[in-house]
Amino acid sequence: MAVDKLWVIKIGGNIIDHPEGLRRFLDRFASLRGRKVLVHGGGKIATRMAADLGIEATLVAGRRITDEPMLRVVTMVYAGLTNKQVVAGLQARKCNALGLSGADGNSIKAVKRPVDKIDYGFVGDILPASVDEEAITTWMESGFVPVFSAITHDGGGQLLNTNADTIASALAVALSSRYDTSLVYCFEKRGVLQNVHDEASVIPEIKAADFEGLQAAGIVADGMVPKLYNAFDAIAKGVREVCIGHADDLHLLHERRFGTRMVR
C-alpha cells in the first residue's frame, strides 16, 4: 500500500521578521504538493513587543529566559499575532491552514525544563510520546494544513515556550509512523556549505557516516553541529530525510534540488 508523502517545514525569524520574505515563502509553501505541516517561532517580534510593554528580554547563551511576564508576551506573539498572520496569508493562497499551539487538541505536551545551573522559567522540553499524531492526522485527513506555533502545554493548565526546531523534529518523528516524512529546516543559507563564504558551495547530500569527517575538517562547525546532530537523530527515529536550505528555494523540494539533504 502506498504511503502518503508528508513535509514538516520549520521557518524562523529570518522569514517571520521580513514581510517580503514571508510573502515569497507562503507562495511556495501553499504550492507545495502533498500533505504538509508548518512550524514557526516568533522571531524578534516578541522581543520588540516586550520592550513596548516595558518587559526586559533576558537571553543566556542565545536562549530566552521565559518568566511569567515573558510567557504572556511569547504566547500573544507566537500563538496569536504571528500564527494568525501566517494562517491568514495561507488562506489568501487557497491553502486551508489551521493555526495551533500544542495545547489545541492536546496535540503536543511538554514538561517544564528542570532547573540546573540556569532557571529558564516556563520553557518546555518535549519527551517521547509527547505528540498526539492521531489528532494531527485527523486534521490533515480532513483537508487542513496544521500551522504550529512554538507554544506547548504540560497537560495541567500550564503553557510553555518550546523551541520550534524541537517541535518540528518531534512532529516529523511522530508522524513518520503514518507518512513518508521529510523534515525541512529553512534558514538564511542555501544549505550546508563546503566554504562558508561561498553560497554556491552547497553540499547536496550528507550521510551519517560523513558527519564526523566534516566536523574534523571544520566544514561543519558552530551552530550547524547541533542542527546536524538533531537531523540524524530524527532520521534514526524514522524520518526519511532532513533538508536544510533557504526558504526561497522551497519550490525545488520536489526536484530534490533543495539545499542539503541528510540521509541514513
Rank of each mutant, 00 (worst) to 15 (best):
N230W: 02
S142I: 02
D210P: 01
E212F: 08
T166L: 09
E134H: 12
A172H: 11
D233W: 15
I65L: 07
V87Y: 12
R190L: 07
K84E: 13
A57P: 11
C95Y: 02
T58H: 13
G223E: 03
L6G: 08
A209W: 06
R261F: 10
G259Q: 02
A103Y: 15
A247E: 07
R48M: 09
A208S: 15
P114K: 14
M224Y: 10
W139V: 11
A164C: 11
Q158V: 05
D125I: 12
F258K: 01
M140S: 03
G99K: 05
A2I: 14
G42D: 05
G238H: 07
R93Q: 11
T75V: 12
A216Q: 15
R24N: 11
L53C: 11
G157W: 11
D52T: 12
N195C: 06
V87G: 08
F187C: 12
G156T: 09
F29M: 03
L253Q: 06
G89C: 04
D154C: 06
G80N: 11
A2Y: 08
A164N: 03
L26M: 13
A51C: 04
G191M: 03
E134V: 15
Y179Q: 10
T75D: 04
R261N: 03
A150Y: 00
G43K: 00
R93D: 09
A217T: 10
M70T: 14
M262K: 00
R240I: 04
G259Y: 09
S101A: 15
L59D: 05
M140G: 01
L32G: 11
F211E: 10
V37P: 01
D4I: 04
V73Q: 02
E188P: 07
G34R: 03
D180M: 05
M76Q: 10
G155V: 11
D104I: 00
M49P: 00
D249T: 04
E20I: 08
L228D: 02
K44C: 06
V73W: 01
G218I: 12
Q158S: 08
D210G: 04
Y179R: 07
R178K: 15
A135S: 08
L228V: 01
I126M: 09
H246W: 10
V202M: 06
